[in-house]
Amino acid sequence: MNANVNMTKEEYSNYVDSKAKKSPIGKNLVWAFVVGGFICIIGQLITDLFTSWNFSKDDASTICTIILIFLGAFLTALNLYSIIGKHAGAGSIVPITGFSNSVVAPAIEFKTEGYVLGLGANMFKIAGPVLVYGITSSVIVGFIYWIIKLFM
């Protein structure tokens, strides 16, 4: 009788991988495609609607963004977005509604700890890294663009 597990860490890891139930990738992909696509269609409909009401293309897409962000936040507050996300995965995380969800969810969660150190401090817990690296990389790209423009 040996009390130690007779496997190296690598052997154990391979053994666990062979034993663990896999995520249903096929199903997840289809759901992500359908839901992600559906959110894009809604966005397109809103944009087209506002363009048909004689808004400029830029204005129409800004209005569309605002409406989608609102819808994401609204569905999060009703606790429906987490149900959509459970099935859709990246399909509902990647669109802007998912970004809205990732800001509103911690805001709801941490409200009990107060408005400043709770809600205020934790609101960007999930979205924060996206903002930090999104803004940083856009500044870098903008800088490169500016340099290239000087010589063109």
């Binding site: 896999k22 995520s23 977005y81």
Partner: peptide, 17 residues
């Protein structure tokens, strides 16, 4: 859930394990 994982309303998928 709040201390160790994601906020409850966050729309993420959980692993089967």
């Amino acid at each position: 859930e709040r201390q160790f994982r994601m906020p409850l309303e966050h729309g993420n998928q959980k692993s089967p394990t």
